[in-house]
Nucleic acid binder design. Structure first.
Length: 601
RNA sequence: CGGGGUGUAGCUUAGCCUGGUAGAGCGCCUGGUUUGGGACCAGGAGGUCGCAGGUUCGAAUCCUGUCGCCCCGACCA
């Protein structure tokens, strides 16, 4: 017979470490790069199944549930109604929607079970990466009157995205837990109201879970305001650059950030001379044209890039010194955008990349282009140099208004730190952040496509105005760790800690020690805390190290030494000091400590 | 998908260049000594060296292919 530890039952819900499951690690797994990822694994919160796939172990699950519950409460307070949609979606729902082509590459396909012999070309099912394609048809079928609006439905559940590169543990997983909400309103004004209710709910949520998240402008709306915000947790390991100015409060994702580089009242430059073609053999880069003998500064060159939007080529003009921010091409309205290949460019433009330009009359097949889009900043050039659409030639004295064929101006360049803030003119700064949430005013894109319309009090039918909202629950969990840890381990904020109180029994073989531990645990539970009792037959050093690693906010230590003196020790994970408490006073002191812990959270 | 790296016991890894018995630490099991910040001694279990081919008398080691994983870029909660 194998010897087993006898099962010990404890009153209340407190868990005995020896009978629970908290596999801590002394060393970090080799594949963990950042602090939060290492701690997730070392503290026994998660284990990896495969790339971007994680099992939540008991401790991790408890935190996930804590965060989910806080999220649920705040979204409900913001007007959300919880429901649960399938994770498996008929591909048909997506095929009828507006972004099948764009979204399918990140979707996992799921075909009917069987021997796989009859696997169709097109998937029958996909695993849901998000749920607009499911909620909108539901609302279309169920809601038809203005009397039933507004509605805001949300769920907290698993999402599947075939991320090209899963990374950093839960930060970018292929299967992850997300809160997603969808609002339906009668008009823009109400939709904006729903939007800001969600934004407020988000702010409350992040405050309660102890994550310092800042709302960052993610899109400049067409209606004079901004109706997309990302919630970013500042962190060095973030994937996104936040462009901001502290004084003015301006903050935007790099992809959407703009600057006041071009004065609004900048007059159009007058032509200086007739355009003139000149030979530039072998010159195919901005840098080469900057060099002798040409000596044209990069910020006096027009850079012409060719992209393909939904199969049609189009051109973008930037200053030679600027970089294209590809995400900004989104405003052009194409579904799928990619850089054109040299083979695609030459027949349309008349030259290979490096000699391209958009001077009127020089484009071989101007009609083939879906448009020529110019960044505002080229107006700062006024008169400059560009490619002649003839290999080995450029043209100078090119005037923006007189000579360039431009369909439309727009903001396409990537902002650089130091440029003037669009709000205040102060220099912009940059820092890294992790996107943990997103609020987005969708408009009628989906409601029109799926026919989600309502009848107003004038018997008129209108498409509903939608908003969509997401919070990465797992990502928030990891962001909290990233923001709240020290050299020894995690320092959980009270509200999301897997347990709030750890009773550390140094001599569990002493019946009186275990008996006292039970008393302390009961007192903490009575005060409203969740309690973990470390009753393992380990040396004190091991227990203290593990306690610091898993980061329970309040630690109560019961040891033979203290027992003799009639004291126990009370220590906050976030502080260094140890407070000795006479056994006679423990119940009252613990109750007060638990209230304090819950209060400051 | 492009560039770089890596795969050896549950975890961290040495060995690979220069082919010849697969090693260590942690963890685990047994016994003992310890006992307030990751103890010590003795004994023990545990490895298809990612996978498939090839070269060779002989491959963890060299070659080819393949797969997984990690890092840098484009996408996202």
């Amino acid at each position: 017979m194998r010897r087993c530890r006898p099962t010990v039952f404890v009153a209340g819900c407190m868990k005995l470490w020896s009978q629970y499951f908290i596999p801590t690690l002394k060393e970090s797994p080799a594949d963990a790069e950042i602090a939060s990822h290492k701690l997730l694994v070392r503290a026994g919160l998660v284990r990896k199944l495969g790339g971007g796939l994680y099992t939540y172990l008991p401790l991790g699950l408890r935190v996930l549930q804590k965060i989910s519950q806080i999220c649920r409460e705040e979204i409900e307070r913001g007007g959300g109604i919880e429901l649960a949609m399938p994770h498996l979606h008929p591909a048909e729902n997506w095929q009828q929607g507006p972004r099948w082509a764009a979204a399918r590459e990140i979707m996992f396909r799921a075909d009917s079970s069987g021997d796989g012999q009859r696997s169709p070309q097109e998937p029958e099912f996909v695993l849901g990466p998000t749920h607009e394609e499911v909620i909108t048809p539901l609302v279309k079928a169920e809601i038809t009157s203005y009397r039933d609006l507004p509605k805001n439905f949300f769920q907290i559940g698993t999402k599947f995205r075939n991320e090209i590169r899963p990374r950093y543990g839960l930060m970018r997983a292929r299967e992850f837990v997300m809160m997603d909400a969808y609002s339906f309103d009668v008009d823009d004004e109400h939709a904006i109201r729903s939007y800001f209710a969600m934004k407020t709910a988000y702010e409350n949520f992040f405050r309660r879970v102890g994550a310092h998240a800042i709302a960052v402008e993610a899109d400049t709306g067409v209606m004079g305001g901004s109706f997309s915000h990302e919630f970013m947790v500042p962190a060095e390991i973030g994937d996104d650059d936040v462009i901001y100015n502290e004084a003015s409060g301006y903050a935007a994702n790099r992809e959407k950030a703009t600057s006041a580089l071009v004065p609004v009242d900048l007059p159009d430059a007058a032509p200086v001379a007739a355009i003139e073609e000149f030979p530039t053999p072998g010159v195919v880069t901005i840098a080469a044209l900057e060099a002798a003998p040409y000596a044209v500064p990069a910020d006096q060159q027009f850079k012409t890039l060719v992209y393909v939007g939904d199969g049609k080529p189009f051109a973008v003009i930037l200053r030679g010194s600027d970089e294209l921010e590809e995400a900004k091409l989104g405003v052009l309205g194409f579904g799928v955008v990619r850089a054109a290949t040299p083979a695609e460019i030459e027949p349309v433009m008349g030259a290979k990349p490096g000699s391209l330009g958009t001077v009127k009359g020089t484009i071989r097949q101007a009609g083939a282009l879906a448009g020529i889009f110019a960044d505002h900043a080229i107006r700062l050039i006024g008169n400059g140099t560009t490619g002649a659409n003839k290999d080995g030639f450029h043209v100078r004295h090119v005037n923006v208004t007189r000579d360039l064929a431009i369909t439309k101006f727009g903001d396409f360049r990537r902002v650089r730190p130091g440029e003037p803030d669009p709000k205040s003119g102060q220099p912009l700064q940059v820092r890294r952040g992790i996107e943990v949430g997103h609020v987005f005013k969708l408009g009628t894109k989906y409601s029109e496509k799926y026919g989600a319309a309502f009848t107003d009090d004038q018997k008129q039918s209108h498409p509903m105005v939608m908003g969509c909202y997401g919070i990465g629950i797992g990502r928030t969990l990891q962001a909290v760790i990233e923001q709240s840890h020290d050299a020894d381990g995690i320092v959980w904020p009270w509200n999301v800690a897997p347990f709030q109180v750890l009773v550390c029994v140094l001599d569990p073989q002493l019946p009186e020690a275990m008996e006292l531990a039970r008393r302390l645990g009961a007192a903490a539970e009575q005060a409203g805390a969740e309690v973990l009792v470390d009753d393992r037959a380990e040396r004190p050093g091991v227990k203290f190290k593990d306690a610091d690693l898993i980061g329970i906010p309040l630690r109560l230590t019961v040891g033979g030494r203290g027992l003799k003196e009639g004291i126990i020790e009370l220590k906050w994970r976030a502080q260094k000091e140890v407070v000795k408490v006479p056994v006679a006073e423990v119940e009252a002191r613990i109750a007060a400590a638990v209230r304090a812990g819950a209060g400051q959270a």
